[in-house]
Design a protein around this nucleic acid. Structure first.
Lengths: 344, 344
DNA sequence: AACCTCAGTTTAATCGATTAAACAGCCGCG
DNA sequence: CGCGGCTGTTTAATCGATTAAACTGAGGTT
C-alpha cells in the first residue's frame, strides 16, 4: 500500500496542496475559510495522511533530528541515563535522536560526523561514557555540545559532574557523623582519571575545613574495581589501631563493595565499626549491598538533559568553561558514628 | 558557510550534475571518460562536497535509517548491549539508527511510530528491556522485528534468549560438580516473569535427566533483588542438614549476591560449603563478587545483532516463532564439589 | 553524401513537501 | 461604471539529489 501524499488529501478535499499544507500546519490559517479547513482535516483523516518528513526537511532545511555521537555509550550501565535525559528533552521538543557509537575510534568518528552532517541534523552532541578531557574531533560543528567530557582546548559548551563538590559532600557526611580518621580509597594514578583527582581535592578540602590533618597513609590506591577496593581496604584495616581509619570514602561503588568484603573478613560491621561512602550510585549495586550504601550519585540524566537543552537552543551555555552539574548525596545506611573507642 | 551542493561540484568540474552524480555513485561509470571522472572527483574533494542525504532519500525513497523503539531501553544496564549489537550491524551496512524511548506508554508508542514512519525509516525494531510477551502495538509495520520480546499473538520475527536451555546449563554445572541437593532461588510468581518459568523448566529437566527427585522445599521464591535472594537463601540454609541444599541456582545475579551474603552470615564459604550459579552475567557485579560468580549470560549483544540483521534483510527469520538465542555459561569460581559430608 | 552507431554527456522530470506571489471574485465607493 | 481593496485559494518555484531519455559529434559504412 503506497503512502498517501499531500496531493491525495488535496484531491479528496477538492483543494490545492498549498491549501492542505497551510491548514495542516496552521500557517496563514486565518486566511482560509473554516469550512475549507474542516474539509481538509476530514480528508486527511480519512485517507490516513502522514506528512513525509524527508520532503519537508528538504524544503525547510530542518530535520528535527539531533545526532548523538558517543564512544561506546551503549556499553556502560551509566550511559543509559544520559541517553534518557537527552532523549526526553528531544522528545519534548519534537526532535528525534540518531545514535552513533564510535568506540572511540578516530576513523569511525570521522565517518559518523560525515554521516550525521550529511543527514543534516539540526544539532549535535558528543558524549563520553565517563568524565574525561578530550581532544575535540576535527569536523565537530562549532555548536556541538560536549556531554560528560571537557575539551582539552578551545571553547565548547560542555557539561561534566561537579566531582570536587561531590567529594566534599561525601567526606562531609563522614565528618558530620563524627569521624576524624577518614581514608580515601582511590583509583591508582596510572588510570589518570579526572574524577579521581577532583574527588581527592574535595576530600582534602573538607578535611582542612574540619581542621583535620590529612594522613598520607589513609590515601590508599588500587585498581578501581571491587578486588582493588578489597585490597586497599584490607591494608588500611591492618594499620595499628591508633592510625586505623573509622571511615572510608571510596572512589566508586565497586571499590566500596570491596571495602565491605574486607570489613566482613575482619569481622567488622558496617557501619558499626566502619562507615563507608561510595561514589556513582551504581544501579543494581549500591542499593543492594548490605547495608545499602550511602553514595554520591553521578547526575547522568541531568547532564543528558542539559546537553540537549543547550543543543536545541533552549538554554544558554558559557563555552569558556564546562558546566558543573551537582552530584547529590544518596543517604542510605552505611554511615554511622565512629565506634565508641574513637568517639568524641 | 553555506553547504556545498552538487551543482557547485558540477560547476567547478565543468560538467552537469548528472555527471557528478553518476561519477560519485559509480553508476553507469563505464560510460564516463576517466578524465571526466578524475576531474569530478578532484572538484568534489576541493570544495569539500558532502551529499545531502535528505535530498537523496527523497529521491531514492530510502533513508538508510532504522527506527529502534523501546520501552525505556536506556534505563537498564543490559539494554546497552542490545543497542550496541543493533548499532554495529547498522553501521556495517551503512545505516543509522534512530532511537525512541516510549517508557511503555501507549500514547508515546503511537507518537513514536508516527514519527518514525513519517521519517521514512527503512526498517523498524521494537525492543523490550527484559524478556516478555507483548501485545504488538497497533501500527507497527508488518516487517518490524521484535527484540527481547515475543508477540502475544500473530506472526512476527522475534528474538528472545533461550532461557530454558540457560537454566539447564546452569543446573548441569552443578550436577556435574557432584551436587544432588540443588535449590532454585526463584523470583516470586507475582512478578510473572517468563524467564522465571522457563529457567525453572530447565532446572526440572536437568534434575530429571540426572535422576534427582525435585524437592519442593528447595524451590524458594522471593523478590528478585539482593535482599530477596538473601532471605530465600537464609531460609534454605536453615533447613535440617539432611535436606539443606549444597548448591543454589539463583534466578539472577542480584539474588546470587544476596545468597553470598546469607552464606557469609552463617559462616559458610563459597564454593567450599555452598556452590552458587547466577543468571544475567550482570556487568560490574557478577565478576566482582568474591569469589567471582559463575553465571549464565544473557545474549543481549547477539540478539541486537540478530534483530538488525533480520530488519535489514540480511537474514531470514521464521515469523511463526521467536528465534531462541543461546545463553552461554560463564564459568568463574563459585562452583565446586559439594562438601565432603555430602560428597559422592 | 547520406546514414548509422556509439561513446560521452546533458536535459529535464521527479521525489513530496513549503511558501512567495499571483489570481479570481466580490464588495463598496466615488 | 470602473477601480481599489479584501478574502480565499491556486500557481509555480524551490529544496538537492537521481536517472530515464535525449542529444551531440566523431567515426564507420555503403
Amino acid at each position: 500500500m503506497a503512502r498517501v501524499r499531500m496531493s491525495d488529501v488535496a484531491a479528496r478535499a477538492g483543494v490545492s496542496t498549498a491549501t492542505v499544507s497551510m491548514v495542516l500546519n496552521g500557517v496563514n490559517a486565518t486566511r482560509i475559510s473554516s469550512q475549507t479547513q474542516q474539509r481538509v482535516r476530514e480528508a486527511a483523516e480519512e485517507v490516513g495522511y502522514k506528512p513525509n518528513s524527508v520532503a519537508r526537511s528538504l524544503r525547510t532545511q530542518q530535520t528535527r533530528m539531533v545526532g548523538l555521537i558517543s564512544d561506546t555509550i551503549a556499553s556502560t550501565p551509566f550511559a543509559g541515563r544520559m541517553l534518557a535525559g537527552a532523549n526526553d528533552v528531544a522528545r519534548e521538543q519534537g526532535h528525534l535522536v540518531i545514535l552513533v557509537d564510535t568506540e572511540h575510534d578516530a576513523a569511525a568518528e570521522r565517518r559518523a560526523l560525515h554521516a550525521l552532517s550529511g543527514q543534516q541534523v539540526d544539532a549535535m552532541i558528543y558524549a563520553c561514557m565517563w568524565h574525561q578531557v578530550v581532544e575535540v574531533p576535527e569536523g565537530l560543528p562549532e555548536d556541538a555540545v560536549l556531554l560528560d567530557c571537557a575539551p582539552v582546548a578551545g571553547d565548547r559548551a560542555a557539561v561534566v559532574p561537579d566531582e570536587r563538590a561531590g567529594g566534599m559532600a561525601a567526606v562531609r557526611e563522614l565528618v558530620t557523623a563524627g569521624h576524624r580518621r577518614i581514608a580515601f580509597v582511590d583509583a591508582e594514578e596510572r588510570f589518570d582519571l579526572v574524577a579521581s583527582r577532583l574527588r581527592y581535592e574535595g576530600y582534602l578540602r573538607v578535611l582542612a575545613d574540619a581542621g583535620i590533618e590529612p594522613d598520607p597513609a589513609l590515601h590508599a590506591r588500587a585498581e578501581p574495581v571491587a578486588g582493588g577496593g578489597r585490597e586497599a581496604a584490607r591494608r588500611l584495616l591492618e594499620l595499628p589501631a591508633a592510625r586505623r581509619p573509622t571511615a572510608m570514602f571510596c572512589f566508586n561503588d565497586r571499590m566500596a563493595m570491596g571495602a565491605y568484603a574486607a570489613a566482613h573478613r575482619r569481622g567488622l560491621s558496617v557501619p558499626g565499626d566502619l562507615s563507608i561512602v561510595g561514589y556513582d550510585d551504581q544501579q543494581l549495586v549500591a542499593a543492594e549491598l548490605d547495608p545499602p550504601l550511602t553514595t554520591i550519585a553521578l547526575p547522568h540524566y541531568e547532564m543528558g538533559r542539559w546537553a540537549m537543552e543547550v543543543a536545541l537552543g533552549l538554554r544558554q551555555a558559557d563555552p569558556a568553561e564546562p558546566h558543573l552539574m551537582p552530584c547529590p548525596v544518596i543517604r542510605r545506611a552505611s554511615v554511622g558514628p565512629p565506634p565508641a573507642a574513637f568517639g568524641g
